[in-house]
Amino acid sequence: MPEPLARCYEGLPTPRLTVVEPEQMPAPYRELLVHDGTMTQTLEGFLGQRLALRVLAQERRGSSLWRQVLLTESVGGRPVELGAIQIDLTCFDEQARTLVLEGRVPLGRLLEDSRLEYTSRPECFFWTEADAAMSEALCVTGAQRLFGRWNRLVGEGERVMAEVVELLPPLEAAPVRRVAARK
Rank of each mutant, 00 (worst) to 15 (best):
F92R: 06
E117W: 12
L82F: 07
S74F: 04
S114Y: 10
A96R: 04
R109T: 10
T90Q: 10
R109G: 01
L65W: 09
A133C: 13
A133L: 15
E112C: 09
R104N: 13
P122S: 09
L89N: 05
L89P: 04
W127Y: 15
I85E: 05
A96N: 04
M134L: 12
T90D: 13
L111Y: 07
E117Y: 12
C124G: 04
L101I: 07
A132W: 09
S74H: 09
R109H: 11
R67E: 00
A96F: 05
P106L: 08
G103A: 10
V105E: 10
G76H: 04
L111V: 06
R78K: 15
Y118A: 04
L65N: 01
E123W: 05
F125V: 00
Q86H: 08
T119M: 15
R109F: 05
L82V: 03
L111D: 02
G83T: 01
D93M: 07
V100F: 09
F92M: 02
D131L: 13
R115S: 12
E129S: 14
C91F: 05
E73S: 06
V80D: 02
L70V: 00
A132G: 06
R67G: 00
P122G: 07
S120N: 09
P122W: 01
E102F: 02
T72F: 01
A132M: 12
T98C: 10
G83M: 01
A133N: 08
G108A: 10
R97M: 10
V80H: 04
G83P: 00
F126A: 14
V105I: 15
L65M: 02
P106N: 08
A84P: 01
A96C: 02
F126Y: 14
A133F: 13
E81M: 09
V105Q: 11
L116V: 06
G76N: 03
T72L: 05
W127A: 11
E129N: 13
V80I: 10
T72K: 01
L99E: 11
W127L: 13
R104W: 04
V100L: 11
P79C: 09
A132Q: 08
S114R: 15
T128F: 05
F126I: 14
Q95Y: 13
P79S: 06
Q68C: 01
E94C: 08
S64K: 03
M134K: 08
D93A: 08
A130G: 11
S114T: 12
G83W: 00
G103I: 02
Q86C: 12
V80Q: 03
T90I: 08
A132D: 12
E112N: 07
R97C: 09
R97G: 10
P122Y: 03
Y118H: 11
V80T: 07
L116F: 09
A133I: 14
P122N: 07
G103N: 04
W66S: 05
P122V: 01
E102V: 03
